[in-house]
Design a protein around this nucleic acid. Structure first.
Length: 809
DNA sequence: AGCCCCGGTGAAGTC
DNA sequence: CACCGGGGCT
């Protein structure tokens, strides 16, 4: 037996050594499962299996990277790189790149993110004349997503009396039709949404037995991490791929299943035995991460759930500190107390900032902590929230990239056809969209053959469209023979985006410009990294499978080592929040803040679980159903088990939510832990309503309360209060003007502004808002005539005569 | 064509 | 409070 396996405990070692046949590893929190997976893969390779025949599915790309690094230390870096390892989405996106043509998609298909998907849905709703309040796009998308993750096609959906009945009684009978149109439209655009990456993989493996056989033979050893969070679609893919050799190893912990809301099915793990009767099961129950107090408390938490595998997690680690309960009266005070505690421990224990994590239920909770950190000058980083890639300027530029790569991508085209402004307006775009839909082709196809469609677009606009088409085509032609950075930079400059943002010197403009630069720098880094062996493999295969046509000549002439823009785009869409962290950020000594969901798989010496209040954690959306509440409890279990040395449970009795203050009860989850594991605040505060509650608020919201004197005692609402300053009578000038004008002319009669055509220099005019004035400058030809008018008491205004309501005096 | 202001409305977690 | 879509204004 090789020496690295000796580092494992007996159960771990047995699990790592059982390489043949179906294996299930139930791995409690902190039980060293990554270590087992790592050694298991190393062991498989040591037995002579080629790394290219191993498929390992992880929850984040970061986890894959770390595991590869660890395997590299055992088997050497070259071999480790050859393992197919990554998230479900990124691995099967790669396979779909290779096989896309078989199911009718182009190899360079676009991946739509949630925003794109919603935008497609909105348009379909418009087309079907459906009210987007009844059919909320996010709800429609969820419903479609659910169906796809259960492998229900649009046709099956429409033919299923149960779903039809459901939709009918919820007064959304058209959902099936919307689903059908959505799939059709995305197909036409050569686009897949996130769920399609799994759904279409299933179609591929189902309809092409030769393809299935190819990948069954390729992936002789399959490992799936975080198996408890797989959905039906993923389950079927795995089952299909493993059917031939049955060397399938799934690792998971039913106690940590927290993605039910996106279709994860805890039954996948509970039923694994039924699928593979000769299954061998290993339970890793020894926790190496946390103290006895943390493990004990976590066990008690999860014991409240009915639906679970029985296992006993234990640890030989030290007793450690009790879990400390921190009680605050407001959300802001919670922020202060937590940050003070971090400050104190950092000093006393010589801890680093990066040893601390704050975990919350919802992203919006981060604000109070940010403010507190800034006050004490403690560096922090936030995972998730509004992503860099969601920013307008970034999405705009990325849309150019996407359209360049895939001309059929209508979503991208619509976003940028008139950005920067080039005089192709909504009216024109509507004509184009309608025409494309009628002929069942992409908008870009309509653009390239504009003269055949007779859309009544005038000559000027036609020219502008032709320029746009030429511009995009010129980019598209170079995708394969320019590197990603060169092309991206060219597009950024050539479109005028860089110039436009550079000339905007407002703080927002400067930040937008910097973001573009950051994106371009990121692309530069990408170009400088070498391809992984999988990427090489995918590249080679795609090239062989390509139809030889003119554009392919370019591809063949292209330099193979060039990393291209389409490769970059493939990579970034599928990054998780944790993956998006840059190297600099990763190494920076900062406190981490994230949702509990994002914290899965991570560990920190000190963890603060915050906002432990009824209706927040557990969320109010979960407390009516047993299943949801149990998932919520598992989420709490995940949060607590991230901690190595000490966990803190924090709550506030009042919280600023939805613009006003709400009163909160401590979470039931705290009470579920036996008090022997807990340390409560020493001074028992029992604030009652008259117990200087307002003073509390004055301190917490000092910037408001110093000036705001009239509290409403029955409902304390600070909504908008921050903007009001009673000391200075602050009413925006413009508002005042429009108010007085409304008072002065309550029923302004419509004016025929073409009368303005006859106005001349130095004429006196009357304006309904600005009053009496004299024309000092007239420029431009009607109807573009612009007048500069000096109004008495209201200063000089520049007005377009065709719009301005003027009368001559 | 594009900006601005208003009012209505919504807010869990994610690849 | 933050985001949005609609409508009015220039």
């Amino acid at each position: 037996m090789s020496h690295f396996l000796n580092e494992l405990n007996p159960v771990q070692r047995a699990a790592a050594k059982t390489t043949e046949g179906p294996v299930m590893i139930i791995a409690g929190a902190g039980s060293g499962k990554t270590r087992v997976l790592t050694y298991r893969i190393a062991h498989i390779m040591e037995k002579g299996v080629d790394a290219f025949n191993i498929l390992s599915l992880t929850f984040t790309n970061k986890a894959a990277r770390e595991m590869k690094d660890r395997i590299a230390k055992i088997v050497g870096p070259t071999e480790a790189k050859n393992i197919w390892m990554g998230t479900f989405h990124s691995i099967f996106a790669k396979i779909l790149r290779i096989e896309a043509n078989k199911i009718g998609y182009p190899n360079n298909f676009t991946i739509y993110d949630t925003d794109d998907s919603k935008s497609v849905i909105k348009e379909i709703l418009k087309q079907f004349n459906l009210d987007d309040k009844t059919y909320k796009p996010s709800m429609v998308l969820n419903r479609i997503s659910d169906a796809k993750n259960k492998l229900i096609s649009a046709t099956q959906y429409l033919n299923n009396p149960i779903t039809q009945q459901e939709d009918f009684s919820s007064r959304k009978p058209m959902l099936g039709k919307v689903y059908e149109a959505y799939q059709k439209r995305n197909f036409k655009a050569g686009a897949m949404d996130f769920d399609d990456l799994l759904y279409q993989t299933n179609i591929l493996l189902r309809d092409f037995p030769d393809v299935l056989l190819k990948y069954q033979n390729k992936f002789r050893y399959i490992l799936v991490d975080e198996y408890q969070d797989t959905n039906f679609s993923q389950y079927v893919i795995i089952k299909q791929l493993a059917a031939r050799f049955q060397n399938i190893c799934v690792v998971g912990d039913d106690a940590q299943s927290i993605y039910g809301f996106r279709g994860a099915n805890i039954q996948n793990i509970l039923n694994f035995e039924k699928d593979y009767p000769d299954l061998q099961t290993f339970k890793l129950e020894q926790n190496y991460r946390s103290t006895k107090n943390i493990v004990g408390a976590a066990n008690q938490i999860i014991a409240n759930n009915k639906d679970q595998f029985k296992k006993i997690v234990f640890t030989d680690n030290e007793e450690g500190q009790k879990l400390k309960v921190i009680k605050a009266s407001t959300d802001n005070e919670e922020g202060k107390k937590v940050v003070d505690s971090i400050f104190e421990i950092r000093m006393q224990q010589q801890a680093m900032n990066s040893h601390f994590a704050i975990l919350y239920r919802t992203n919006s909770q981060s604000r109070a902590f940010e403010e507190a950190f800034r006050r004490l000058n403690i560096p922090y980083k936030i995972y998730g929230g509004v992503s860099f890639y969601q920013r307008k300027e970034i999405k705009d530029l990325l849309s150019y990239f996407r359209l360049t790569i895939n001309n059929s991508d209508d979503e991208s085209l619509k976003r940028i056809i008139n950005y920067p402004a080039r005089g192709i307006g909504q009216t024109t775009l509507d004509k184009l969209t309608v025409s494309a839909a009628e002929h069942d082709i992409s908008i870009f196809t309509v653009l390239t053959n504009l003269k055949d469609f007779n859309l009544g677009i005038n000559a000027g606009t036609t020219n502008k469209i032709n320029d746009f088409v030429m511009q995009i085509k010129s980019y598209s032609l170079t995708v394969k023979y320019k590197d990603a950075y060169e092309l991206a930079n060219h597009i950024a400059v050539n479109t005028g985006i860089v110039k436009e943002l550079y000339s905007d010197k407002t703080p927002e403009g400067v930040s937008r410009y910097e973001n573009i630069q950051e994106l371009l720098n990121g692309i530069k880094d990408f170009v400088e990294q070498k391809r992984t062996p999988q990427e090489e493999e995918v590249n080679d295969i795609i090239k062989q499978s390509l139809v030889k046509d003119e554009s392919q000549l370019f591809a063949e002439q292209s330099n193979n080592d060039l990393k291209t823009l389409d490769e970059f785009m493939q990579e970034i869409t599928l990054l998780t929040d944790v993956d998006k962290e840059s190297d600099d950020e990763r190494n920076a000594d900062k406190v981490s803040m994230m949702t509990v969901h994002a914290s899965k798989g991570l560990e920190f010496p000190y963890v603060y679980v915050v906002g432990l209040e009824e209706n927040l954690f557990p969320s109010q959306l979960s407390i009516t159903s047993r299943a949801d509440l149990e998932e919520e409890r598992r989420l709490f279990y995940v949060a607590v088990t991230r901690a190595e040395k000490q966990a803190f449970l924090c709550f506030a009795t009042m919280r600023y939510r939805f613009g006003n203050v709400t009163y909160c009860e401590p979470s039931r989850f705290i009470e579920e832990i036996d008090s022997t594991f807990l340390e409560y605040p020493q001074v028992a505060e029992t604030p009652t309503f008259n117990d200087n509650l307002f003073d509390k608020f004055r301190n917490d919201y000092s910037d408001i309360s110093e000036k705001e004197t009239s509290f409403n005692t029955t409902s304390i609402n600070f909504g908008g209060a921050k903007k009001t300053n009673p000391g200075i009578n602050f009413t925006p000038a413009k508002k005042l003007v429009s108010l007085t004008s409304r008072l002065n002319s309550p029923s302004a009669s419509p004016v025929d502004v073409s009368l303005n055509q006859s106005l001349q220099l130095n004429d006196f005019v009357m304006h309904e808002k600005f009053g009496r004035g004299q024309i000092t400058i007239l420029e431009g030809k009607w109807p573009e005539t612009k007048a500069t008018i000096n109004f008495e008491g209201n200063g000089t205004k520049n007005l377009l005569l065709k719009f301005a309501r003027l009368s001559k005096i």
